[in-house]
Amino acid sequence: MTKTCFVTLAVTTIDVPAARDSAHPAAKIVAAIAMLVAKRDDAGDWSFTLERRAIGAGTGEDALMAWATPLMPEAGTVIGWQLADRVVAPLIDAATIGDAEIGRDFLDRLMVLVTSPSIDLAIGHGGAGAPDLAIVCADRHIALYSQSAGHIASAWSFGELRPLTNQVSCEAIAVWQLWLAESNGHASAASDAFADWLASQIF
């Protein structure tokens, strides 16, 4: 049985300032990744999985890359918000600064996905100049749990992973809901199935 697959990607990043002695430049660290995978079979039935993981300060991004690689579908339509800048670019950077084998395996899988059909929902709202995702979601009555950059950075610094996984999971869910909401009525079956699935989840 064949399946149509959609992969909503979201990341949470931490901005680390440059060291005072200039030994280490400013960096953007990927602290959490979420993948919401939606599949529709030939009968029109939908299934959903939400994979998410976070790391704290002192844990290399390789841990996220190694975790994500086998979980990424080999094919599917990728959905995201400001996909190139806010999602793909930080992931590429993370994959190129750590273990070469882990990074290569991750990039091979990521590039297959993002060079397949992809949907950047921000394009319809101004692309790089789009308003904050939370504002767009609010206009569609989509709840988006969002924490301040300071709160996220603090959680990462002290190894408190729950706020990080909550943040990235909620963004992936909100982006998927936004895509459904903007489908002009063509995604009613997917919307109903997702609502049922979401109601059964405990995050």
Results as ranks from 00 to 15, higher is better:
residue 53 R to A: 15
residue 148 S to N: 02
residue 190 A to D: 04
residue 24 H to E: 05
residue 182 E to Y: 03
residue 198 L to N: 11
residue 111 M to D: 02
residue 152 I to S: 04
residue 162 R to N: 08
residue 10 A to S: 15
residue 14 I to C: 02
residue 200 S to T: 14
residue 10 A to Y: 03
residue 22 S to Q: 12
residue 149 A to W: 00
residue 93 D to C: 10
residue 15 D to T: 02
residue 151 H to Q: 03
residue 108 D to G: 01
residue 15 D to M: 01
residue 191 S to A: 09
residue 60 G to M: 04
residue 43 A to D: 14
residue 24 H to G: 01
residue 137 C to S: 03
residue 27 A to R: 13
residue 84 A to Q: 09
residue 164 L to M: 04
residue 91 L to W: 09
residue 42 D to T: 15
residue 36 L to E: 08
residue 19 A to R: 10
residue 6 F to V: 10
residue 172 A to M: 09
residue 202 I to K: 07
residue 118 S to W: 01
residue 100 A to Y: 00
residue 12 T to K: 12
residue 167 Q to T: 08
residue 29 I to C: 07
residue 150 G to A: 09
residue 55 I to T: 15
residue 49 T to I: 04
residue 18 A to G: 11
residue 136 V to N: 02
residue 178 L to C: 05
residue 1 M to I: 03
residue 118 S to A: 15
residue 163 P to V: 06
residue 122 A to Y: 08
residue 83 L to G: 01
residue 132 D to M: 07
residue 180 L to F: 00
residue 20 R to W: 04
residue 82 Q to H: 11
residue 132 D to L: 09
residue 45 D to Y: 06
residue 163 P to S: 05
residue 129 G to H: 05
residue 174 A to C: 14
residue 73 P to L: 09
residue 171 E to K: 15
residue 70 P to V: 07
residue 19 A to H: 07
residue 101 E to R: 09
residue 165 T to H: 02
residue 188 S to F: 02
residue 140 R to D: 07
residue 82 Q to S: 12
residue 20 R to T: 10
residue 69 T to L: 06
residue 188 S to P: 00
residue 155 A to R: 08
residue 40 R to F: 01
residue 42 D to I: 01
residue 143 A to T: 13
residue 64 L to T: 13
residue 43 A to Q: 14
residue 33 I to S: 10
residue 134 A to N: 04
residue 10 A to E: 13
residue 15 D to W: 00
residue 24 H to T: 11
residue 161 L to W: 05
residue 2 T to K: 13
residue 109 R to I: 00
residue 199 A to S: 15
residue 44 G to Q: 06
residue 101 E to T: 12
residue 188 S to A: 13
residue 61 E to M: 15
residue 132 D to Q: 11
residue 4 T to H: 08
residue 59 T to Y: 02
residue 202 I to P: 06
residue 71 L to I: 11
residue 39 K to Y: 06
residue 11 V to G: 09
residue 191 S to D: 11
residue 170 C to Y: 08
residue 95 A to I: 04
residue 82 Q to Y: 05
residue 125 H to M: 01
residue 112 V to A: 12
residue 36 L to M: 14
residue 110 L to H: 09
residue 22 S to H: 12
residue 5 C to H: 06
residue 23 A to D: 06
residue 26 A to R: 14
residue 85 D to E: 12
residue 27 A to E: 11
residue 44 G to H: 05
residue 100 A to I: 03
residue 127 G to K: 02
residue 82 Q to C: 12
residue 189 A to C: 04
residue 8 T to Q: 01
residue 32 A to M: 08
residue 177 Q to M: 13
residue 21 D to P: 11
residue 113 L to W: 04
residue 77 T to W: 00
residue 28 K to H: 10
residue 68 A to S: 12
residue 65 M to G: 07
residue 184 N to P: 01
residue 108 D to C: 08
residue 178 L to N: 06
residue 136 V to F: 02
residue 61 E to W: 10
residue 123 I to H: 05
residue 57 A to L: 14
residue 184 N to S: 14
residue 42 D to C: 05
residue 38 A to H: 00
residue 125 H to C: 02
residue 162 R to W: 08
residue 23 A to F: 03
residue 189 A to N: 07
